[in-house]
């Protein structure tokens, strides 16, 4: 059984210039313990689907889907209270801006303990103990001291580690990471990605990684979905996607990577679009 299954998801936003379709009928599937990467450029709707699952879209968004199941249970028909129980405990999410995602008024420790208080019935002392363990698990040095730190006293990488600690606090079955390393330096990115991959393997979590970076995809994913302007262009396992991309847009993206440059100029997406139209 798939962990998360979404069929024919459509998301439309009401804007002052009329409705705008951010996603026009895309299906997603993640298995337990699998790393799925959703890749696309801005405007591809890569974040929208998972925000819809989490119920984080603004009221101006209209979401419809043929099916949306988590472990076989229908998310569309269940009550709001039941859904809240799943979201945050079984499914959790981390975002691009780690410093902005944490509440600046509270300490890191308080924010981790708050998650535990909401989704578990651990007593206060045990919550503190668990928070320290979690901070150790995500590789924060001196976790006891760091519990009392405010977000602005920590670096971006450390904030992202705290976010990850909060996300895995209730041992979720599915973790959604929306551009988790885009705001970070490469050496920090490497550490955070390694951490995510280690936690994913240790806990056997499903992981959905939303990114624009083909390098990150290559380093992490099992399976990849390529999106463009609200549509799925290609879905394949990572090796075949990089080795033998089927879709013209995927080929364009891969050849636009500077490391794949062969001549003195890079091929651009426009070349492929024009070539495709001519053929």
């Amino acid at each position: 059984m798939s962990l998360l299954e979404i069929e024919n998801l459509r998301v439309t936003f009401d804007t002052s210039s009329g409705p705008f379709a951010a996603l026009s009928g895309v299906s997603y599937r993640v298995d337990p313990g699998e790393v799925l990467a959703i890749v696309g450029e801005s405007g591809s709707g890569k974040s929208v689907a998972m925000l819809a699952v989490m119920g984080l879209l603004p009221p101006s968004a209209t979401v419809t889907a043929d099916a949306m199941r988590f472990e076989g249970r229908d998310l569309l028909t269940m009550s709001a209270a039941e859904r809240r129980k799943i979201i945050g405990r079984d499914i959790s999410m981390i975002f691009q801006e780690p410093i902005a995602s944490l509440n600046p008024c509270f300490t890191a420790g308080f924010q981790i303990e708050e998650v535990l208080a909401r989704h578990t019935d651990l007593p206060r002392r045990a919550r503190r103990q668990r928070a320290i363990e979690l901070m150790q698990a995500v590789g924060i040095p001196e976790p006891k001291r760091r519990l009392a730190s405010f977000p602005h006293q920590m670096s971006g990488g450390q904030c992202q580690r705290v976010m990850i600690a909060m996300a895995i606090a209730c041992a979720p079955k599915l973790l959604i990471a929306d551009e988790p390393t885009t705001a970070l330096d490469v050496t920090i990115q490497k550490q955070i990605l390694d951490l995510l991959m280690r936690l994913q393997a240790d806990h056997g979590m499903g992981l959905i990684l939303i990114t624009h970076d083909m390098g990150v995809v290559a380093e992490t994913a099992d399976r990849v979905i390529v999106q463009y302007m609200g549509r799925k262009m290609e879905e394949a396992d990572v090796l075949s996607l990089f080795e033998n991309p089927q879709n013209a847009y995927t080929r364009a993206l891969l050849s636009a990577l500077p490391e794949n440059a062969t001549g003195t100029r890079l091929p651009t997406v426009a070349d492929f679009r024009l070539a495709g139209e001519d053929a």
């Binding site: 804007t15 210039s17 951010a22 450029e41 801005s42 405007g43």
Partner: peptide, 8 residues
Amino acid sequence: HLEEPTHL
């Protein structure tokens, strides 16, 4: 066309 199709 590629970027920000949302833009007013």
